[in-house]
Design a binder for these strands. Structure first.
Lengths: 246, 246
DNA sequence: CTGCATTCTTCCACTGAGTGGAAGCACGGG
DNA sequence: CCCGTGCTTCCACTCAGTGGAAGAATGCAG
């Protein structure tokens, strides 16, 4: 009786997506067994799907492992993910980079996380953890704090109730963070020091469209000692510029 | 007899990819019927697949139409498409932008086309036709000519045998182009004037790794009259810089 | 408003594409 | 050499997928 009952209720499409979803920032390269485990699909099913996906260019083989293929890269780029915002921001992000030589970020709030839309990599020695397309917690990054400070009350409360520590310096006290967010609103900018990654500080300001905060831009630098004022000024100029082009 | 025989030999995976492949640069937003036609799948099959893909975030509805979804955007970004080259090039592309304020391109040869890997958009009035992730013909763009000038003999011959006119100024004579490519090799840079898009000129230089041309970088400007020398110089500095970091 | 063309959505009986357990390989470490 | 781990192939069973057709919605022209 080697026969089989199939798996009632599951569409092939869902399985295909599950396979693709096995890949993320920390797993760009995976073997059959890993993908099978992460997608919770039977090994042999996974194996066949992978073969088909490779045949159509959605994935590529790299030795025994699999990586996302060219086909998905250029299809993915067609997604209208805040296209207008990214277009409008692009030149201003360059300006910030030119003025600071630091790593520059553009992010929006996606639920209770910060979604990174754009990144210009500086040549500094700071370890950068962000990646375009991935998300980071709202309470531990500069752009995150800006977005959180201007998020709806209840979402803010929800985030404050579960503050995970990323580094020993991450702010995990709701009281402290609430006070910080208040200052973000009154001062017009947010800062972090070693809160997401040791040896990395950040400054961020909001981008507004007709008063509403729709995004945040920020820079990551090794230290804030000297440059805070200069960085804030450069960011605010850019932030207003972007807002004017939305 | 409303029954059905299915379509022997077709996997669901293939259909899913066919649906996704219906989207491209010029068709970012499509209705069911269009997708059905472009993917050559029966209408009702297409309709169901679209529903499933939307349910899993691979596509998104926009009114009646469909667009590529967030899920595919961030998965696509994980693809290792010349990642090292793009990493290495990034700061130098910014330098070029800072020095020229023009639209900057990074491209590699993909078969008989130029594949655009990176683009920094200038604020100039020039109409830019390139898009990251899409391809343009080798004979009508600056980066394309550089890549063609250093392509294998037989590929070059093949391209020369089918020179399509994109604008009235596109070079379609094999003799003329051959001469131009010779000059690209001896001068170390290529130019175009109104050949891809009217009112747009370009300059491009090769990026070499251990002597081999592995990519091309270029700028698009409204006119070459004044700045040719300055542009070539800026590009060549960057080109060598990138090469040193590969 | 009415009629016609086009596109979108739903339905359903049939069946072969997809399934997954198991067996067979291939590699590598002890 | 053996054993653990991961990759690949096999195959009988069956339900997920199929696609023609009918019906609903939209849009345009007269």
């Amino acid at each position: 009786m080697a026969g089989n009952t199939g798996n009632p209720g599951a569409t092939v499409t869902a399985r295909v997506i599950a396979v693709l979803a096995a890949f993320d920032e920390r797993h760009r390269r995976l073997g059959v067994t890993d993908i099978s485990r992460r997608s919770e699909l039977p090994l042999s099913t996974t194996h066949r799907l992978l073969g088909e996906l490779v045949a159509h260019g959605a994935l590529q083989r790299e030795g025994r492992d699999y990586v996302i293929g060219r086909r998905l890269w250029d299809v993915g780029l067609l997604a209208p993910v805040q296209t207008d915002l990214r277009e409008a921001a692009s030149p201003f992000l360059h300006d910030i980079y030119a003025a600071t030589r630091a790593t520059v970020h553009l992010a929006v709030r996606d639920g209770n996380e910060a979604l990174y839309l754009e990144r210009l990599s500086g040549r500094s020695s700071v370890a950068i953890v962000s990646t375009v397309g991935s998300t980071l917690p709202l309470h531990a990054t500069g752009v995150g704090k800006v977005l959180l400070a201007h998020a709806p009350q209840d979402l803010c409360r929800e985030v404050l109730s579960r503050l995970s520590a990323v580094t020993p310096h991450t702010v995990t006290s709701p009281r402290t963070l609430t006070a910080q967010l208040e200052r973000v609103r009154s001062n017009g900018y947010a800062t972090t020091e070693d809160e997401m990654s040791l040896g990395a500080c950040s400054v961020a300001v909001p981008v507004r469209r007709r008063g509403d905060v729709v995004a945040a831009i920020g820079v990551v630098v090794p230290t804030l000692k000297r440059d805070r004022g200069r960085l804030v000024a450069a960011l605010q100029v850019a932030g207003r510029g972007i807002g004017r082009h939305l």
